[in-house]
C-alpha cells in the first residue's frame, strides 16, 4: 500500500508533521504558520528539573502541545491512540495505511537508524509520518530530512516503544476531519495572542520572557557555583536546546519571524511585518550568545566571563518581554 504523500523538509519535527499532514488533507499550511497558530514559541528555565543531570531550558511549549493547539484553533479533528503492545500498534498503523491515511507518530530518535549517529540521544518525542508499507519496510517522511526514508518493521517498533521521558507507548495520530472553511486568519490571531500573553505577562520567573532574565542570573553564578567543568556542561546544554534540536535557528525565533511575516501578508497588517524584523534582530542576539557560549565551552573565551554571558541574556530577556508585551497590546 502506497499513499501519494508529498514530503517537505522542515526545521522542526512537530511543526513539520503538522504542515505535511495538513497539506495532504487539503489545508496548505507552512511550517512557520503551524508554529504560530499552535503557539509553539516559548521560554522556560527549570533548574530543579534535570535531564541527564542538566537543568531543563526550553524555547518551546511542551511536546505535542503545538499540534493540540493548532487543531483546536483550526477545528481540525484528530484521532490519537496509544497501545499496550507493539502488535496492536503495528496492526493499527497497517489498517490506516490500507485506508490510504498517512499516520503521524511519536518515536525515539535513538532507534531511528537513518539519522546521523550524533543526533541519536534518547529523545522520545520525535514526530514522523509513515505513509507506505513495502514488504517489511515502512516509508517514513521524517520532517527534518530532505527526502523520505525507509525503516524496517523491527526498528520502527523499537522507536515506537521507547522507554523513559516519556514512554512513547506506540502513540500515533491522524486527522479525521479537516474543515473546508477554516478561518486561518482568526486562528493566526488566536495563536499569536496566546504566545504574546505567555511570553510577555506570566509573572512567575521560570516561564516566559522573565525566565530569560532568571536564567541570566543563574548563568552569572555557574562557574562560582559548579566549577569550570560543570559550568561548561550547563552552558552547552542551553545552546543545544537553542540550536541543535531543529529549531530553525535561535530557538524558534527565526521561524517565528517567518510566521509574523506571513501573517502580516495574510492579515494585511504592516505592523506585524515590523514585528517580524524586530524578532529577527532578537534572534541574532540569541545567535551571538550561542556563539560566545561555544567559545566558552571550547576554552577560547579570551577574557570573556560568565557575567558577560549573563548580561547578553538579560538584555535579550528585556527585549523579548517588551516585544511580546507590544504584540499583546495590539488590536486585531
Amino acid at each position: 500500500m502506497r499513499i501519494d504523500f508529498e514530503h517537505r523538509q522542515s526545521a522542526h519535527c512537530e511543526t513539520g508533521v503538522i504542515s505535511n499532514l495538513m497539506r495532504h488533507h487539503g489545508l496548505d499550511i507552512s511550517e512557520p504558520m503551524a508554529l504560530g497558530i499552535g503557539s509553539g514559541l516559548f521560554f522556560s528555565h527549570m533548574p530543579f528539573i534535570k535531564v541527564n543531570g542538566l537543568p531543563v531550558t526550553t524555547y518551546r511549549i511542551m511536546p505535542g502541545d503545538i499540534f493540540k493547539k493548532f487543531a483546536k484553533r483550526t477545528g481540525v479533528e484528530m484521532k490519537r491512540q496509544k497501545f499496550s503492545s507493539p502488535e496492536k500498534a503495528m496492526d493499527a498503523l497497517d489498517a490506516c495505511l490500507e485506508q490510504g491515511l498517512p499516520v503521524g507518530m511519536l518515536t525515539s530518535v535513538f532507534y531511528l537508524p537513518y539519522l546521523p549517529r550524533a543526533f541519536r540521544f534518547h529523545f522520545n518525542a520525535h514526530n514522523i509520518v509513515v505513509y507506505a508499507k513495502e514488504g517489511d519496510d515502512y516509508l517514513v517522511s521524517d520532517p527534518i530530512l530532505e527526502e523520505p526514508v525507509k525503516i524496517d518493521r523491527r526498528m520502527l517498533i523499537r522507536a515506537r516503544f521507547a522507554k523513559g521521558m516519556p514512554n512513547t507507548n506506540g502513540r500515533m495520530y491522524y486527522p479525521t476531519h479537516v474543515p473546508k472553511d477554516i478561518d486561518v486568519n482568526a486562528a493566526i490571531v488566536k495563536g499569536l495572542k496566546y504566545t504574546a500573553k505567555d511570553m510577555g505577562t506570566i509573572p512567575i520567573p521560570i516561564f516566559g520572557g522573565r525566565a530569560i532574565g532568571f536564567l541570566a542570573g543563574r548563568v552569572a553564578n555557574y562557574e562560582k557555583k559548579y566549577g569550570q567543568d560543570e559550568a561548561k556542561k550547563y552552558l552547552g546544554n542551553i545552546v543545544r536546546m537553542q540550536e541543535e534540536i531543529g529549531t530553525g535557528g535561535a530557538g524558534f525565533r527565526f521561524m517565528f519571524g517567518a510566521f509574523l511575516q506571513e501573517a502580516s501578508g495574510r492579515l494585511g497588517n504592516p505592523m506585524l511585518h515590523k514585528k517580524s524584523q524586530e524578532i529577527t534582530k532578537i534572534g541574532d542576539l540569541w545567535r551571538n550568545f550561542a556563539y560566545d557560549c561555544g567559545r566558552m565551552v571550547k576554552g577560547r573565551a579570551d577574557g570573556m566571563s560568565y557575567q558577560d554571558l549573563a548580561y547578553q541574556l538579560s538584555d535579550i530577556g528585556r527585549r523579548e518581554i517588551l516585544f511580546f508585551q507590544s504584540i499583546h497590546k495590539m488590536k486585531f
Partner: peptide, 24 residues
C-alpha cells in the same frame, strides 16, 4: 561531518530584502 553527509538541517533566514525563507 557530524551529520555524516546524511542531512542538511533547515534554518530560517532573511534575504537582502528582508524576506524570510529556508536555507539548508
Amino acid at each position: 561531518n557530524l551529520f555524516e553527509g546524511k542531512v542538511k538541517v533547515v534554518k530560517y533566514a532573511v534575504d537582502d530584502e528582508g524576506n524570510y525563507g529556508t536555507v539548508g
